[in-house]
Simulated assay, not measured.
Amino acid sequence: MGIIKVENIRVFAHHGCLKEETKIGSDYRVDLSVKADLQTSAKTDHLAHTVDYVLLNKIVVEEMKQPSKLLETVAQRILERILKEDDLVSKATVSVSKINPPIGGDVESVTIKMTIRRKK
Rank of each mutant, 00 (worst) to 15 (best):
L32I: 14
S68G: 09
V96M: 14
R118Y: 08
E108R: 06
H46E: 15
H49K: 12
A13K: 10
G25C: 11
S95L: 05
R10C: 05
T93C: 06
Y53E: 06
D31E: 02
H14R: 15
V74G: 03
S90Y: 01
S41L: 06
V110A: 13
E85S: 07
S33L: 07
G25D: 02
V74K: 06
G16F: 02
A42S: 14
L83I: 00
L47R: 10
G104E: 00
T115R: 06
L38Y: 09
D37V: 00
V74C: 15
N8V: 06
K65W: 01
Q66E: 14
L88M: 09
E7Q: 14
K65P: 02
K58R: 15
M1D: 05
V30D: 00
T111D: 07
V74I: 13
I78V: 07
K113L: 08
L18K: 11
K120T: 05
E85D: 15
L18G: 04
A36V: 04
R117T: 13
V89E: 08
Q66Y: 04
Y53W: 15
G104N: 03
E80K: 14
N57T: 12
K119T: 10
D31T: 07
L71H: 00
K19M: 13
S26C: 13
K58P: 01
K91L: 07
V110Y: 01
I82Y: 07
K19V: 13
V60C: 04
M114T: 15
D86Q: 09
T44Y: 00
V60A: 04
K23F: 12
R29G: 06
I78P: 06
S90E: 06
I82E: 03
K43F: 03
E7T: 14
I4D: 07
L56W: 11
N100C: 09
D37Q: 03
